[in-house]
Structures are given as structure tokens and as C-alpha cells.
Simulated scan of single mutants.
Amino acid sequence: MIPGDAHDVRDPELPGLLLRTERDALIPLLRARPEGDFARPTAGCPAWTVRELLAHCSAALMRVVESRFEPGVFSPEANDRDIAERGDWPTARVIDELERGMTEAGPAIARAGGVLDAVALGEWVHAGDVREAFGEAGAYGGAGLPHALTLLVRVSRERDHVPLHADLDDLDDPLRLGGVPGDRPPARYIGGAATLVRLCSGRPVAGATKYELVGAEEEELNLFG
């Protein structure tokens, strides 16, 4: 259960907890996969293979760890440069860097006062992209899901996103995402938490659990679009 009031107060340790929780699930999975699997395409980021996505994730986290925030640091051009810089690395080295970033980025995110919290959420979503590319069940779920939902609500409110009332099949209490309702009443979502994550991160929902969405279009829910 995630109490509604828990989303209104920032927990500076939560992003780091989410990253470490995901690290413990993802890194062993990566180390067990054959090299050919890292050339698979990813549905969440169709321009990137699994290996390229992991290189982006590890580079972004190390920028956080090392406080390297030059202008345009997370732009598409900067992301492409980060991936290219790791183009001749062995895959194991990329995974090592990712593990270090997921371990060490939490304190830096905590000190940033909230402006980097979405980085942890994005990294968790990308881990789901990798699991989906590998054909793993429950791609956008697992032990980190409750932490991710808490961050999802907070990030959606801070960005004054479309108001959404979400009744989740796998949570007792509803979630209230987005900004304060104005002339437009909150949209209504009924369905699973993992499918809500897909919608809010612009991921494909084909094959996901059935859901109902009233009062908003799917693309309006995308926080990262």
C-alpha cells in the first residue's frame, strides 16, 4: 500500500533505494545473458539496441555521480555521444559501469533537492525496456514498482501534468497523478500498475493487461515525451 499523503513529501533517499533495488534484480540478469541478446532492439527506445540503452543508462548515472552537468547534458545529441564513447567497450564493462552508477548515484540525487529524482525513475523504466527486449515476464514490475509509483506521482505533480485518478488492480489505495484539477476534471484510469507505468512513460501497451482510460488520450499521459 502507498498512502496518498506519502507522495506529497519528498523522501530524498527514495531515488537511491529504487536504483539499488533495481540493481539487485537487473545486474544478475544482464550478466547471465549471452552476448547476442545485447543486439536486440528495444521497444521503448526503438533507435537503440539493448547494449546502447545500457550505455546511455550507465553514462547518465555516472554524470550524476561525478556532477558533470554541462549544457545540454541529457539532450539527444549528448546521449548519442555518450553511447558512441562506449562503442568499443566490452559489454561487461558497460554493465560494470551501470552497476557502479546504480550503487553510487543515490546520495548525489538526494543532495540535488529533487531536480534529479526523475533520473532514477527513468533508469527504472529503462530496466523495464531491457527486460521486455529479453522477453522477461513483468517487465515494468518487480520489487522496485512501489518506489517507482511514488516517484511517478511526485514527478507528474511537479511537472503539472494532466490530472489523473488511477484505480489500480494491484493497490488498495488510488493514486492521484498530475497537477491540481482546473476547468478540466481529472482523467480516470482503471487497470494494472505496470500498464500505467507504460502509459506514463510512452511505452507500447500492446499485449499489456487490459485497462480503461477516460478523459485523456494515451499520449497525454507520457511524462517523458
Results as ranks from 00 to 15, higher is better:
residue 7 H to P: 00
residue 7 H to V: 14
residue 7 H to Y: 09
residue 11 D to M: 05
residue 12 P to K: 06
residue 15 P to A: 13
residue 15 P to M: 10
residue 15 P to L: 09
residue 20 R to Y: 01
residue 24 D to Q: 14
residue 32 A to K: 09
residue 35 E to H: 05
residue 35 E to W: 07
residue 36 G to L: 06
residue 38 F to Y: 14
residue 40 R to F: 08
residue 41 P to C: 05
residue 42 T to H: 03
residue 43 A to S: 12
residue 43 A to F: 01
residue 48 W to Y: 14
residue 49 T to N: 05
residue 52 E to Y: 05
residue 53 L to K: 03
residue 54 L to N: 14
residue 58 S to N: 15
residue 62 M to N: 15
residue 62 M to T: 13
residue 65 V to P: 02
residue 66 E to A: 10
residue 68 R to W: 01
residue 70 E to K: 09
residue 70 E to N: 01
residue 71 P to S: 08
residue 72 G to F: 08
residue 76 P to Q: 13
residue 78 A to V: 06
residue 78 A to N: 14
residue 82 D to E: 15
residue 83 I to Y: 00
residue 84 A to N: 09
residue 86 R to W: 10
residue 87 G to N: 11
residue 88 D to Y: 00
residue 89 W to S: 12
residue 91 T to I: 10
residue 92 A to R: 12
residue 93 R to K: 09
residue 103 T to S: 11
residue 104 E to A: 15
residue 106 G to A: 10
residue 108 A to T: 04
residue 109 I to E: 02
residue 119 V to M: 06
residue 122 G to M: 07
residue 122 G to N: 05
residue 123 E to H: 09
residue 125 V to N: 00
residue 125 V to E: 00
residue 127 A to E: 02
residue 130 V to W: 00
residue 134 F to M: 14
residue 136 E to G: 02
residue 138 G to E: 08
residue 140 Y to D: 00
residue 143 A to V: 13
residue 143 A to R: 15
residue 148 A to C: 11
residue 149 L to V: 09
residue 150 T to R: 14
residue 150 T to L: 12
residue 151 L to T: 04
residue 157 R to Q: 11
residue 158 E to S: 04
residue 161 H to E: 00
residue 162 V to F: 01
residue 163 P to E: 12
residue 164 L to Q: 01
residue 165 H to L: 10
residue 170 D to M: 05
residue 171 L to Y: 06
residue 172 D to Q: 00
residue 176 R to D: 13
residue 178 G to C: 10
residue 179 G to E: 04
residue 180 V to H: 12
residue 185 P to S: 03
residue 186 P to N: 06
residue 191 G to E: 07
residue 200 C to M: 15
residue 200 C to E: 03
residue 203 R to V: 01
residue 203 R to F: 03
residue 204 P to S: 08
residue 206 A to T: 11
residue 207 G to S: 10
residue 208 A to W: 01
residue 208 A to G: 06
residue 211 Y to K: 04
residue 213 L to I: 14
residue 214 V to R: 13
residue 221 L to H: 09
residue 222 N to P: 09
residue 223 L to G: 06
residue 224 F to C: 10
residue 225 G to P: 05
